[in-house]
Amino acid sequence: MIKNGMRLKSQVCETQVIVVKAGAALADLRCGGQPMVHLDQESSIAGAPDPSLAQGSVMGKRYVDEAGAEVLVTKAGAGTLSVGTTPLDLKEAKPLPASD
Results as ranks from 00 to 15, higher is better:
Met1Leu: 13
Ile2Asp: 13
Gly5Gln: 05
Arg7Ile: 07
Lys9Met: 03
Lys9Tyr: 07
Lys9Trp: 08
Ser10Val: 01
Ser10Ile: 02
Ser10Ala: 02
Gln11Arg: 03
Gln11Tyr: 10
Gln11Leu: 09
Gln11Ser: 10
Val12Trp: 02
Val12Ile: 08
Glu14Ser: 01
Glu14Trp: 00
Thr15Tyr: 00
Thr15Pro: 01
Val17Lys: 00
Val17Ile: 01
Val17Ala: 00
Ile18Ala: 03
Ile18Tyr: 12
Val19Arg: 09
Lys21Arg: 14
Ala22Arg: 12
Gly23Val: 09
Gly23His: 10
Gly23Asn: 13
Ala25Gln: 12
Leu26Thr: 08
Ala27Cys: 10
Leu29Met: 06
Leu29Ala: 05
Leu29Asn: 09
Arg30Asn: 03
Arg30Phe: 02
Cys31Tyr: 07
Cys31Thr: 00
Gly33Leu: 06
Gly33Asn: 04
Gly33Phe: 05
Gln34Val: 11
Gln34Cys: 03
Pro35Tyr: 12
Pro35Met: 07
Pro35Leu: 08
Val37Ala: 03
Val37Tyr: 07
Val37Asn: 05
His38Leu: 14
His38Asn: 11
His38Glu: 10
His38Ser: 12
Gln41His: 14
Glu42Tyr: 11
Glu42Gly: 11
Ser43Ala: 07
Ser43Cys: 13
Ser43His: 04
Ser44Gln: 14
Ser44Leu: 13
Ser44Asp: 14
Ile45Trp: 05
Ile45Asn: 06
Ala46Gly: 15
Ala46Tyr: 15
Gly47His: 11
Gly47Arg: 12
Ala48Pro: 10
Pro49Asp: 07
Pro49Leu: 06
Ser52Phe: 15
Ser52Thr: 14
Ser52Trp: 12
Ala54Leu: 11
Gln55His: 15
Gly56Cys: 03
Gly56His: 06
Gly56Arg: 12
Val58Trp: 10
Met59His: 03
Met59Lys: 10
Gly60Leu: 02
Gly60Glu: 05
Lys61His: 11
Arg62Thr: 00
Tyr63Ser: 04
Tyr63Gln: 05
Val64Arg: 15
Val64Trp: 08
Val64Asn: 07
Glu66Ser: 10
Gly68Leu: 11
Gly68Ile: 12
Glu70Pro: 01
Val71Thr: 04
Val71His: 04
Leu72Gln: 02
Val73Ile: 00
Val73Cys: 00
Val73Asp: 01
Thr74Ser: 03
Lys75Met: 00
Lys75Gln: 04
Ala76Met: 07
Ala76Leu: 05
Ala76Pro: 06
Gly77Asn: 14
Ala78Lys: 08
Gly79Asp: 00
Gly79Ala: 11
Gly79Thr: 01
Leu81Phe: 02
Val83Leu: 07
Gly84Ile: 06
Thr85Met: 08
Thr85Arg: 12
Thr86Lys: 07
Thr86Ser: 11
Thr86Trp: 01
Pro87Val: 03
Pro87Cys: 02
Asp89Gln: 04
Asp89Pro: 02
Leu90Lys: 05
Leu90Ser: 12
Leu90Pro: 09
Lys91Ala: 09
Lys91Tyr: 09
Lys91Leu: 04
Glu92Pro: 09
Lys94Val: 15
Pro97Ile: 15
Pro97Asp: 13
Ala98Gln: 14
Ser99Phe: 15
Asp100Ala: 15
Asp100Cys: 10
